[in-house]
């Protein structure tokens, strides 16, 4: 069958899709978007988390045919999604810190996050990242990285809803994303860091 939908703002069409295929397979094997990861394929790890019409879902549990006409955002589109959100100002227009400012963030003695290495934030060839992506790198929340895409999509959506989550809120929101490497401490650091960089200016919403 043919499936037509929007991925990361772009219209995509796939032909000869087997009816039993998942959205995850469609993204990874037919559309060249392997960022969403295939760790369990049973909704028990969150590594394939994508936004489906805005809601974080496990792409492995969405039948490919079900996304006809719908909008999907994957980790590959997270930076754009985040930028559009801050430019559009619809939900997070009042966020205070620019990407550039976030990049030069330094932990003070009482700062959030793991230390004073933020000056090393440049890690690649100038790829523009969303605040949560940058925070994951800076906080050391990435080891093998297989859980990272799903965690980023989930955490980004959390911060969209709740700009200053408590630790318990973060834990509950991320409880569907397994990580086997980090012990989660640096992931908590990263979400706290992104929240701190994002400021608390989200009037009328959040915690």
């Amino acid at each position: 069958m043919r499936v037509t939908f929007t991925v990361n703002g772009r219209r995509q069409e796939a032909d000869d899709v087997w009816e039993g295929e998942s959205l995850l397979y469609l993204l990874r094997e037919r559309l060249g978007l392997p960022g969403s990861k295939n760790a369990c394929e049973q909704g028990e790890c969150g590594s394939c988390t994508v936004r489906l019409d805005g809601a974080p879902v496990c792409a492995c549990l969405v039948a490919a045919g079900q996304v006809e006409g719908r909008e999907v955002v994957t980790v590959e589109g997270l930076a754009d999604h985040s930028r559009e959100r801050s430019e559009g100002g619809r939900t997070t227009g009042a966020r205070g810190t620019s990407l550039d400012e976030a990049r030069t963030w330094q932990a003070g003695p009482t700062g959030v996050g793991p230390g004073s290495h933020a000056a090393d934030s440049l890690t690649g060839g100038g790829t523009e990242l969303s605040p949560i992506q940058q925070a994951f790198i800076d906080a050391g929340a990435v080891q093998c990285g297989f859980c990272t895409p799903g965690l980023l999509v989930t955490a980004d959506e959390l911060l969209e809803r709740n700009a200053s989550p408590s630790d318990a809120d973060i834990r509950e929101a991320l409880s569907g994303n397994l990580c086997r490497c980090t012990g989660y401490e640096t992931i908590l650091d990263a979400v706290r860091l992104a929240a701190a960089r994002g400021g608390t200016a989200k009037a009328g919403e959040g915690a």
Partner: peptide, 22 residues
């Protein structure tokens, strides 16, 4: 509908229905 049961069965080859109704 949500696929949270059906897709697990499809992904792991536990079930091959003739027809899926979305």
């Amino acid at each position: 509908a949500g696929g949270t049961d059906v897709m697990v069965e499809l992904n792991f080859d536990h079930r091959r229905p003739d027809v899926l109704v979305d």
